[in-house]
Amino acid sequence: MAKKRTNKYKKHIKQSPGSIIYTGENPTEKLFIDAFDYNNSFINELELKSVEEAFNFKKTESVSWININGLNHIKDIEKVGKHYNLHPLIIADIANTSQRPKIDVYDDYIFVVLKMLYYDDNENIKIEQISLVLGSNYVLTFQEIEGDVFNNVRDRLRLANGRIRTLGPDYLLYALIDAIVDHYYIVAETMSNKIEDLEEALFNGNINENLSQEVLNLKKEVLKIRRSIFPIREIISRIEKNEHALIEQNTIQYYRDIYDHVIQLSDSVDISREMIWSLMDMYMTTISNKMNEVMKVLTIMASIFIPLTFIAGIYGMNFDNIPELHYKYSYYILWGVMILIFIGMIYYFKKKKWL
């Protein structure tokens, strides 16, 4: 039975432009908001009970990172967007989880959409959209569910490691994007290991009935990773070339480092893609070789019995002296021999994995 596919775009039909519609798969997710407010001398880590508490960070002299989990809470997302003067289309894009990674540059803020990739405990790839808004003294992040790849950034903020507490929100945006891109390396490495395991299984002839499905799943995973990584080059390129007032010149070099990482990841994904195509070719070749082996054995068996059958066809049972014809149990013995031959051949074919 074919798998029923959901259409995320169907919700937008007959809706006016800018309509805020949640298109994700977690309609019951609870709203969770945490915040970091800091400068080079202090840090305040908070868990906010309502979106209204996030409004106070807009005019502070410190740097604030407000992380909002639960895109299904559309009214709360809209409240935050209106307070921070986000365009209605931006608010709609935040709720629409099928967005392609992109960047939109406005006069007083920069909006970035990225995809967080990770493998679950069963090594199934998961994709979560994250939206980031860079303002004059804040960074807003919107996530579909609680849990992300930013724990290292949080630890650096708490311990004041590196430059993160001494530089502005543009560096915080860099740190968050860098954490997402760094996690792509783990995904790419896991993907490469899965491809190598399948390649080794094919090379050793260990073909199971699910192997073709595993190769197909790998192909789909590589395409998902590729669609998530490739647009980041355009995003970083626009940040470098736009010369926006929110991006300090001394921070540009850090974004260029992300660009180098994305190029490296893109090459790795392209290599994985080529390896999967090679796996498909190898799989078809292995199946063909296995079939050739089966046909060779069957051809040999047929070649042996064809002349015997030809001789039996000519002479039949036309002999005067056939002792077993007069034996009382000859008929039953003959049936027993034929059944044993049949069972023996079935067992042999199954042992050789021809059946």
Rank of each mutant, 00 (worst) to 15 (best):
55 F>C: 09
309 T>E: 04
133 V>M: 02
130 I>W: 02
96 N>R: 07
304 I>Q: 07
263 I>S: 02
164 I>D: 12
10 K>W: 05
203 F>L: 10
108 D>A: 08
152 N>C: 02
281 D>V: 08
71 L>A: 05
222 V>L: 09
291 M>T: 13
149 V>G: 03
204 N>G: 00
257 D>Q: 08
195 I>V: 15
299 T>M: 15
259 Y>E: 05
86 L>K: 05
48 L>R: 07
329 Y>L: 09
166 T>W: 02
241 K>D: 12
312 A>C: 04
347 Y>R: 14
22 Y>S: 07
28 T>W: 03
351 K>H: 14
277 W>A: 09
129 Q>C: 06
330 S>N: 10
25 E>W: 03
333 I>L: 12
342 F>Q: 06
355 L>C: 05
159 L>A: 14
122 N>I: 14
296 K>M: 14
269 V>H: 06
256 R>T: 11
207 I>S: 03
245 A>K: 15
96 N>P: 05
350 K>Y: 01
77 I>S: 00
188 A>S: 10
190 T>H: 08
333 I>P: 02
76 D>C: 02
213 Q>L: 12
46 L>S: 07
79 K>E: 10
148 D>Y: 06
261 H>A: 02
54 A>V: 01
299 T>Q: 11
73 H>V: 07
252 I>S: 11
278 S>H: 06
323 P>L: 06
108 D>W: 05
213 Q>S: 13
4 K>I: 12
16 S>A: 12
41 S>A: 10
163 R>I: 10
121 D>P: 03
257 D>T: 06
282 M>P: 00
80 V>L: 14
43 I>V: 12
15 Q>R: 13
258 I>A: 03
348 Y>C: 08
14 K>E: 08
226 R>T: 01
83 H>R: 11
114 L>Q: 07
70 G>F: 14
206 N>H: 11
197 D>I: 15
80 V>N: 04
216 L>V: 13
277 W>C: 01
9 Y>N: 10
343 I>D: 06
326 H>Y: 10
105 V>E: 06
161 N>Q: 13
161 N>P: 01
304 I>H: 04
23 T>W: 03
341 I>F: 13
332 Y>T: 12
277 W>L: 08
31 L>M: 13
144 E>I: 05
321 N>W: 05
125 I>H: 01
73 H>P: 04
101 P>C: 10
139 V>G: 09
159 L>Y: 08
235 I>V: 14
280 M>H: 15
313 G>W: 02
337 V>F: 12
83 H>W: 07
69 N>P: 04
244 H>L: 03
79 K>Q: 11
325 L>P: 00
349 F>I: 08
305 F>C: 08
331 Y>R: 09
224 K>S: 06
335 W>R: 02
180 I>D: 07
112 V>C: 03
239 I>F: 10
15 Q>P: 00
262 V>P: 01
2 A>P: 09
305 F>I: 13
27 P>G: 01
318 N>M: 07
108 D>N: 15
96 N>S: 12
184 Y>D: 01
347 Y>T: 12
249 Q>H: 09
72 N>P: 03
167 L>T: 02
36 F>K: 08
101 P>W: 09
59 K>G: 01
89 L>M: 10
65 W>F: 04
44 N>H: 06
228 S>C: 10
38 Y>S: 11
209 E>A: 14
230 F>D: 08
293 E>A: 11
38 Y>F: 15
197 D>K: 15
233 R>P: 01
338 M>D: 00
51 V>Y: 00
280 M>I: 13
132 L>Q: 02
